[in-house]
């Protein structure tokens, strides 16, 4: 157990430089790249006094190193800055409003993609080299290349507009009331025993999460297949077969458990694909999450909010990769060298 603790501690310490670099990267993108944020906000025609005042308000008249220190200090305090419009609302409050929607979408999409990936991957691994295997390989290539907005629109058009089965935009019907506890509608409606709310939220969630889930499932198909094939070649599988254990049980109970480890390590990397994909999904389905929030604020040139949101994404990515690595260390003892 000592080595596990040491591993986790090292991993946490290693996250610090990564967070630092990510924060500096955001700073670099926001301040040093050409393009004056103040001019971008007020336009070319604004009076010099106005520009000067805004520059001072944003702290952009200070030397660059000073701005950098202020920026890092602000984030260290857990402050992501304040909106330049919208009555100077703290960015963290706004993110708090919007993030649950993205979290709910990504969790559901993730579940969809892992489910598809497991079923197709295990199936392909039982029949290597056959037509079905080649077909699934093709599926994994095509799925990844399916442009999220196109798949989303096709689903909207067929299931939403033509068949009128599911809603095509938003997170819930305007008349349905769901009390906010966590901000995850499915969870909140369950906690408040609100069956109508649950069904409604689920109906709205289906198309976006299927869209995002299908596109990301291809990676899992491939990964599950190759790691299953590897495990199936091992001695303990042969021993199980020799003992006459049914093949289905070997596959699902013994092989899959071991094959799952590489899949788990992929989840950290997959998470950033999931976040990026969520932006396209949210835009396609007018989903009120982080992605639509970010784009809205880019359009309004709310410079400070854009910066705060990007910083939030950076912190999120660093944290998730840390958590995935720690879970990994718990599951696979080989990692705790």
């Amino acid at each position: 157990m000592v080595s596990l603790r040491v591993y986790i501690l090292t991993r946490v310490l290693l996250t610090i430089p990564m967070v630092f670099i990510l924060l500096s990267l955001v700073f670099f993108v926001m301040r040093i790249l050409p393009g004056d944020p103040v001019i971008a906000i007020v336009g070319m025609k604004a009076s010099p006094e106005h520009i000067e005042r805004l520059r001072h308000e944003l702290g952009l008249d200070k030397p660059l190193w000073r701005q950098y220190i202020d920026y890092i200090a602000m984030i260290m305090r857990g402050d992501l800055g304040r909106s330049m419009i919208w009555g100077k609302r703290p960015v963290s409050t706004e993110i708090w409003d919007r993030f649950p929607a993205t979290l709910e979408l990504t969790i559901c999409a993730f579940t969809v993609s892992v489910l598809i990936g497991l079923v197709t991957g295990v199936f392909a691994s039982t029949k290597p080299g056959t037509k079905a295997d080649v077909g699934l390989r093709l599926f994994s290539i095509v799925a990844y290349s399916l442009f999220i907005p196109l798949l989303g629109m096709l689903l909207q058009f067929t299931l939403g507009v033509k068949l009128k089965l599911l809603p095509v935009a938003g997170r819930k019907s305007p008349l349905v009331q769901i009390d906010r506890i966590t901000g995850l509608y499915l969870l909140d409606s369950l906690l408040t025993l609100n069956l109508v709310g649950f069904v409604d939220a689920l109906r709205y969630l289906l198309l976006p999460s299927i869209t995002l889930g299908v596109v990301l499932s291809g990676v899992y198909t491939r990964l599950v297949r190759s790691s299953m094939l590897e495990v199936l070649r091992e001695d303990f599988i042969r021993a199980l077969r020799a003992r006459g254990i049914p093949e289905g049980q070997i596959l699902l109970r013994h092989a899959l458990k071991n094959a799952f480890i590489p899949v788990l390590t992929m989840m950290g990397l997959q998470f950033s694909l999931l976040l990026a994909g969520a932006i396209l999904t949210e835009t396609t389905f007018s989903w009120p999450g982080m992605g639509t929030f970010l784009l809205e604020r880019i359009e309004y040139r709310d410079y400070t909010t854009v910066q705060g949101t990007i910083v939030f994404y950076a912190l999120l990515v660093a944290m998730v990769s840390l958590i995935v690595d720690i879970i990994y260390a718990y599951i696979d003892p080989r990692i705790r060298y």
Binding site: P17, M18, I21, L22, L25, V26, V29, M30, L33, P34, G35, P37, A40, L269, S272, L273, L275, A276, G277, I279, L280, L294, L295, I298, V306, I310, Y313, A314, V317, A318, S321
Partner: peptide
């Protein structure tokens, strides 16, 4: 370290941030 950090960051979001700043 710098390259690994860029790599870990969601690609599209990075592109969005840079594109938004560059105009």
């Amino acid at each position: 370290l710098v390259m690994d950090s860029i790599y870990a960051f969601p690609g599209l979001i990075l592109a969005i941030a840079v594109a938004a700043m560059l105009g």
